[in-house]
Design a protein around this nucleic acid. Structure first.
Lengths: 339, 339
DNA sequence: TTGAGCAGTTAAAACGTTTTGACAACAAAA
DNA sequence: TTTTGTTGTCAAAACGTTTTAACTGCTCAA
């Protein structure tokens, strides 16, 4: 036998037609039990594997999903946000358990994303992952929808968003953080993040946080806010600028753990003690969070469940079943940075 | 236009034959400049994308590589070793820059890996990644080679290994760690890891470490060694058991950063101060390493370069070019845990 | 005795490319 | 004038499946 065995080879050795081989291998009820057994036996013997390209071409589907990971454009090229990496793991597993392959691709937000995976029949659907500037994306989303591309998006489910999303209850998470700081009586709080419509997830976190403070008749000062994207560096600089402007506070809510870690570094450098002088709360509960000094109090997002929901919802969409946006419950993890 | 445009549609609108379209789109020299322009124009207008399945089927190749990630069987299901995740990033980028797609799949070492990606024409080659028990794998490697599967492996290049490898100079890295501890005069050193042929990478690290000590007439005590796989938990327990047995030492070399982090936790818990009482050195330089308390001294592996070499070497193998095993230089990163 | 229904099988037609071999049209060489 | 070559194009043959439609034998009811 030269080259790889084809279904014709199996057919020949099993003494049946090629179409019967195809059916037998996929356990079609149209084929006799005894024949099926014989065919499968031969196939195994010849180490036959169905050619995915041929099979996909004929069946017009690929049993493959594509994961597009958007990185913050300014983030260090070599470092990927650990939060998304955690999600990657669970997405992979969920795909595998559903019998789908996963193609992955890192996109820089600046470049126009040729999400041509589906166009070129390489994937049946697309998962979009990243803290992105969704204002930028709206147009892209619409064009994807126009082309009838199946995709699901991780992130904030803003009211007028046309796409299917899975997201953490960022608003509720912000409330959890606020509740905690109020309970330990650290009401003079700074916020590091981006509370604009450009990053709706951070915005929602901030809203929830603020609303909970307001509910307790505490007003957050606009002056105690600084912009940052989700990197350690960015959190560091934002916090430094607050300190440099002589802004004082006794607690700090960071829109993500990476920001929080950068903030802690800036605080320490300025001789401000965590948690004695300033309590710090982050968001995400990335693996690093428990190893920082002090360990970081944070709002956990359930990445395992998130990955599963992304995959399951996308598959439903592909099968044209009913799907709805999914909101996952956050959970407060209290550690040394706020006690 | 219902459904997706095919090359026949383009042919029709451009007033040429389908075969000319195929050539024009791939910039074949066989087609006239003017015709090419016209065809590409039409293709763009109809948002035409070559069907990968059809093209792969015909061309008998897939422009896709598969990444198989082996996890330590006992590792927490939801947590993936951050070292491999870092590598994943650079592999993805390297693939993209070479025009290849990347399929990824997590394998548990126990299950027999049906590395049937290549068999089923889904990928042109395979990258194997993981701290694995290579004794177990030898047989698998040979069967892959027999089937003429193209694959490249991250890990120790043991002499009699039949496969193509890219690896860090683990032996040299071990020497670096030893050099450093000797320089700061912490000669009474414990080792946490697995110095058996089952994990040749850890073994090589230990060998380099020991040889450097020996070169300085210092003998390492067999009693001050404890077995661990590459998880925080495992490092924690191994270190606890040393302490429980009243074994004393003033420095500790861990075969990986995760192990080192677990070790630090165990030491602290026992009231042993790092670095005052015990200097700790790890291996990998994962992102967490700079955030531990104290920050971890470690031997860095260049994951960016490693990922690139894995991809480049695999592509060479696929193209039947000359390839050799690649050894990457490690680098010592000195941080608070050893000064 | 016919006809309908069923179970198992097959030949042949897709699927959308790439590539081979043939064939025009025209120019240059004999 | 015939030959030889060159350039561009095209029709048709792969690639290895899945699926449709057709065809056997059968059995069972009318």
């Amino acid at each position: 036998m030269k080259g790889k065995a084809t279904s014709f080879d199996i057919a020949h050795y099993a003494g049946v037609s090629q179409s019967t081989v195809s059916r037998a291998l996929r356990n079609s009820p149209l084929v006799n039990e005894e024949t099926r057994r014989r065919v499968q036996e031969v196939a195994k013997q010849l180490n036959y594997k169905v050619d995915k390209n041929a099979s996909n071409l004929r069946a017009q589907q690929s049993s493959t999903l594509a994961l597009l990971l958007f990185e913050d454009p300014t983030a260090d090229e070599s470092q990927i946000n650990p939060f998304f990496l955690a999600m990657l793991g669970s997405i992979t597993r969920a795909c595998a358990s559903e019998g789908y392959d996963l193609l992955i691709s890192f996109q820089s937000t600046s470049a126009d994303w040729q999400a041509d995976y589906e166009d070129s029949h390489r994937a049946d659907g697309i998962i979009l992952l990243g803290y992105g500037d969704y204002v930028d994306y709206q147009a892209k989303f619409r064009s994807l929808l126009e082309q009838n591309t199946k995709f699901v998006c991780w992130g904030a489910s803003v009211d007028n968003r046309p796409d299917l999303t899975v997201s953490c209850d960022n608003y509720g998470g912000g409330k959890l953080a606020a509740e905690h700081l109020l309970k330990v009586n650290r009401k003079d709080c700074a916020f590091i993040g981006d509370a604009s419509e450009h990053s709706p997830e951070f915005f929602a976190r901030y809203q929830g946080f603020k609303d909970e403070f307001t509910r307790h008749d505490v007003t957050l000062s606009e002056r105690k806010m600084a912009n940052a994207i989700s990197t350690e560096e960015s959190g560091y600089h934002a916090t430094r600028s607050l300190i440099a402007n002589n802004i004082v506070f006794n607690s700090l809510f960071a829109a993500s753990d990476l920001i929080a870690i950068g903030a802690i570094r800036a605080l320490k450098e300025a001789g401000i003690k965590v948690p004695e002088d300033v309590h710090v709360v982050g968001f995400d509960n990335i693996a690093v969070a428990s190893f920082t000094n002090p360990p970081l109090t944070t709002v956990q997002q359930d990445t395992t469940l998130a990955g599963q929901m992304l995959v399951f919802n996308l598959l439903k969409l592909i099968r044209s079943e009913e799907v709805e946006n999914t909101l996952l419950p956050p959970k407060l993890i209290i550690r040394g940075s706020s006690i």
